[in-house]
Design a binder for these strands. Structure first.
Lengths: 332, 332
DNA sequence: TAATTTTATGCTCATTACGAGCAAAAATAT
DNA sequence: ATATTTTTGCTCGTAATGAGCATAAAATTA
């Protein structure tokens, strides 16, 4: 019936990868899935189970096949298995990137089809304590400890990363390569004059990876955890892509509100933005910005904090979502 | 050898779509390919030819299959057939979006595999007159005449689009839908208080399409050309995505220089930016911006114009490309 | 040759955006 | 009551942005 299934083109399979983000207790979290190793050992060649990474020592992002016969769009395919797999209703979804590099998935080596994987970013609301327990939520900074500057410059930078970068620079083959490496390190890690740029998450990860300091799934050295917890396959790369994209996006689109409960105080909103961007913001200026953009409106109610002066409660003005151009929530 | 080729998953084929852009004589151009109708009529079921849209009455973007066995990355696959098909060396390439909607490609209906298409944007340098003749370059505003504001507000807006939008708004089923439509139209087309936003190319196209005013391949009404020339399949949608993305990107990344010859005057640079963004810029402020960012350096030479005072020639400082954070070339 | 046209380039000015901090208000904790 | 903590309002200096004036240096035209 189908033409051409014998030629090289047909050896392709489409996977959908979801980075599902929620900010819980001021920490940005990603949803993992139960590693299916145990269940799949019984029927190892089950087509569906093939889609789960078989290596159970690593954290794995939700990942599923795309069945074209059943789904009119990639996104509807994503929503359907995410719903089943994670009991998570996902609202806001955005396509991230399509990863097609050979060798992404070790199963390819065994003659399996090439897996092209379309990555998606989904944002879900802060969960109540019971709902949290249902899912495997993990603080994303556990994979990228150098990305969280909220409590000041992360120690890991000066203790582990910079010395290693110095070695990498010294190891260059030529003077020009050395200069290149030095410049690249300076830009991505904000050395010298260059300021730290919170969006360069993927660039930093790739530099560390290139410098053979970061472990992806295959490589596993003793001190690998010093540079963040590894993940299965290329999932850490996908997560880095998601974080960088989200950090960029909150600056010009009002997407943070997808992560907020229906009403919130301005400080709560600020804490969520800070959690995502990994840096602290000036409180008064943050309020000025938010109010100027007209993104929120006061509910009239007041929230009594644990301590301190009670804060006014706000809600997001859903109307501005239609206004696709409505601005974001961070200046810089 | 390959497991699972019989199940629904295998009915997938990956296509790569290229939007290849060059600014020629101050007009933004996209490269089309020769429609293959004539050649493929002899062997209609040839696997490779299946990848070319068979309808020869529409303009078609370069489009080719991805052979996973031959290419380690999607991008290398793209570069290889683009080179063969168009005689174009492409330098800068960026992944745009992955289009997977059912019904994109009419061949699916005939039992063919679902075609998932990964769109790419490529920028190539301005060609000399002879090189131009080799390719099928087309001014992109021929497909989106309402996007070019360089000579003032495009007539088509008030003459054709706004009246049609008004009808569409009036046709709403409910008052709330009417309000929604009104707001959406106002935002995307810059009505009332809202200013025109040059990045909303796709949003405008989709609104027009939804409002059943724009023809994609299948539909062909007599007055369709009034709202821009149609393209094959969903190629106009892909092009709209590319234009919007590029208009956004030039604002924060120095990508314009990919379109420039080795040396150029500041006015030439400005004209290219204006061609892409479809609007005029303030000359003195543009120079101030460019020079402040340190993106260019004077060559010392001077270009004698056709008339007027001779202008200094500049070259792009390639060094800043390593600095991924180097800023773009438009403020707004 | 002199005036006109065209483009390049330098500079000013008003307005707005941004980063930083002072200070008072309103609650709880000791 | 006093200290502490958080909210909220306000100011101030600096930088960025948008608009325009003015002069320079060439070609074209009268």
């Amino acid at each position: 019936m189908t033409l051409g299934t014998e030629d090289t083109r047909s050896q392709i399979t489409i996977g959908l990868n979801a980075v599902i983000v929620s900010v819980i207790d001021q920490q940005p979290n990603v949803l993992l899935v139960q590693n299916k190793e145990e269940t799949s050992s019984a029927s190892a060649s089950n087509a569906s189970d093939q889609f789960f990474p078989t290596d159970n020592q690593y954290d794995v992002l939700p990942f599923g096949p795309f069945y074209p016969a059943q789904h009119p769009t990639l996104e509807s395919g994503l929503r359907s298995w995410v719903g089943e797999q994670t009991n998570q209703e996902i609202g806001y979804v955005e396509q991230l990137y399509t990863f097609g590099n050979a060798g992404r998935d070790p199963r390819e080596q065994g003659g399996g089809p090439r897996v092209i994987s379309v990555g998606y970013l989904a944002l879900v609301q802060d969960k109540n304590p019971t709902a949290r327990e249902e899912g495997l939520w993990r603080d994303w900074y556990r994979y990228f400890p150098w990305e969280d500057w909220r409590e000041g410059r992360p120690e890991i930078l000066d203790r582990d990363i910079l010395p290693a970068l110095k070695n990498w620079i010294e190891d260059a083959d030529s003077n020009s390569q050395k200069k290149e490496r030095k410049e690249r390190a300076a830009i991505t890690f904000g050395l010298g004059e260059t300021p730290w740029n919170d969006e360069l998450v993927l660039e930093r990860f790739e530099l560390l990876y290139e410098a053979a300091m970061v472990t992806e799934a295959q490589i596993d050295t003793v001190d690998s955890k010093k540079l963040g917890i590894p993940m299965a396959l290329d999932h850490r790369r996908i997560l880095a892509t998601a974080i960088g994209r989200l950090r960029g996006k909150i600056k010009y689109r009002p997407v943070v509100f997808e992560l907020m409960p229906p009403t919130f105080t301005l400080l709560q909103l600020q804490r969520v933005v800070e959690a995502l961007s990994g840096s602290r913001l000036h409180k008064q200026n943050f309020r000025r910005l938010i109010e100027k953009k007209g993104l929120v409106e006061a509910t009239g109610r007041i929230e009594t904090q644990i301590r301190g002066r009670p804060a006014a409660q706000f809600r997001f003005r859903r109307e501005v979502l239609i206004e696709r151009q409505a601005l974001g929530v961070r200046q810089n």
